[in-house]
Design a protein around this nucleic acid. Structure first.
Lengths: 266, 266
DNA sequence: GCCTTTATTTCGAGC
DNA sequence: GCTCGAAGTAAAGGC
């Protein structure tokens, strides 16, 4: 995690910084005097003024003034950011297609440009998250249920590799499917296929259980699990791994103690 | 317009900077590793992760990750920001009442803190904007209507000072009420009172006209004006004065030429 | 993929 | 103050 800052840069400097920030996939903020033009589903035009422009690596762009929760102009994720120097001004343009929309921000003066590297979190999130959840289940099998005993990971089956395979407190085979985030019916179906595959392996009449471990599931997925006699356990990867993207729904929060040494604002 | 930046500050330093930024009414951004707790209309909890926190002087707070148009957590305008150092972490808390809501952001590591002074624009916007519109009307009286002749500004009347008073092409008294942004029924009523006050001053039977000059008006206001035989002229303060807050609705934008020397992002 | 429903919706207008 | 409706709604869930 890094942050590089340019204070009062020349437009050329700002352009270079933007280019490399885009290259690295950084989160970028620009503050300065600018005009804003938007044309797409609607159209709008803002005269010169001090604003904060936030450019995200997923293509989202936000133009904020010092007031309001909602950006005065924006571009949704999936847009493409470009930067150029034109007519002595730094122009940042964010374009998307279907629908065709263009956001054009022209800085007469860039007060500050900051590029924040979020690369670390991104990579960990994508590749390491379900692995973290697996590690947690293996380290604390009671996460799945009391008495659960893991016997194998990535156990092969006709339906594919099973995340965690083991036995429950009563010795019954138990298939565990892990998902790092909220899941829908597809995950329920996947678990059902694994359970059915194991049942075919086992002597006739063997009761094979299935547990879906995920932070939360949709109603439809819960219905499907119930129909197939499968269970769901609400558990997420441990803190600090998949954290930060706010994937699962709101969770209750304990009220907090008072603060001290504080300072008011508005 | 100023921007002060702290790079990798100690929590104490960050706290001091926040305090003075709050004092000045600055727009503040913090980037770093933090947890986020929200409790109010709903409740949510985010584990450690890299995020951008935006604190506005009007009380709005936004927590952004590197993805999405919508903040992962926020607090609407009207909230109160406070900062403190607690348990070795910088805590920024934004609280509002009715409904009772609390947003709690705790930084284990502040990568960067920036305070943007928007004071200049703010003051100009608030105190200078209607004056700019008045200057425009005096410089170009045909903005109100062809043949309009301004005779006085802030002319006293029983109902209060009249923005611009003059005579129309046919010599009839004309009261002009100026508004820098879109107006509702209140402005129509105000104009009607001015017109009535002038009618009382004039010889019986004198026809006194009234014109409301504003970028746009609500339907209800238009109805009221029509009932009283008053007029509306769509005109806004010239560019660069009231600009920056995006007060009036979207206005058509001319399509723009292509860009060059550009660089892509996502 | 498109459609429907939800939201800490936000935001503005009318009453 | 509250209620009602629109939004460049955004985003998730279901089909």
């Amino acid at each position: 995690m890094t942050a590089t800052t340019l204070h009062d840069p020349a437009h050329r400097e700002a352009l270079w910084a933007l280019e490399s920030a885009f290259e690295r996939g950084d989160l970028v903020t620009l503050f300065g005097d600018c005009t804003v033009e938007y044309d797409g589903r609607a159209a709008s035009s803002l005269g010169p003024g001090a604003r904060l422009l936030v450019l995200k690596p997923d293509g989202a762009a936000l133009v904020h003034t010092d007031e309001g929760r909602t950006p005065v102009n924006w571009q949704p994720p999936g847009s493409e950011h470009r930067a150029a120097v034109r007519d002595g001004r730094l122009r940042v343009r964010s374009v998307r297609t279907s629908p065709a929309e263009t956001l054009d921000v022209r800085f007469s003066d860039v007060e500050q440009l900051a590029a924040y590297g979020v690369t670390g979190g991104r990579g960990v999130d994508v590749v390491g998250s379900e692995a973290d959840l697996k590690r947690r289940v293996l380290a604390e099998p009671e996460t799945v249920e009391p008495g659960f005993e893991p016997l194998a990971t990535e156990r092969e089956s006709e339906a594919g590799p099973i995340d965690v395979f083991g036995r429950d407190a009563e010795g019954r085979p138990l298939v565990v499917e892990l998902k790092r985030r909220r899941v829908g019916p597809d995950a329920a179906g996947q678990l059902a296929r694994y359970v059915a595959a194991i049942e075919r392996e086992m002597p006739d009449g063997t009761d094979v259980r299935g547990v879906l471990v995920a932070p939360s599931i949709t109603d439809r997925a819960a219905d499907l699990l119930a129909e197939d006699g499968l269970d769901h356990v609400a558990a997420a990867p441990p803190d600090g791994s998949a954290a930060g993207k706010g994937d699962d729904g709101p969770s209750p929060t304990a009220p907090d103690d008072d603060d001290d040494g504080a300072d008011r604002h508005s």
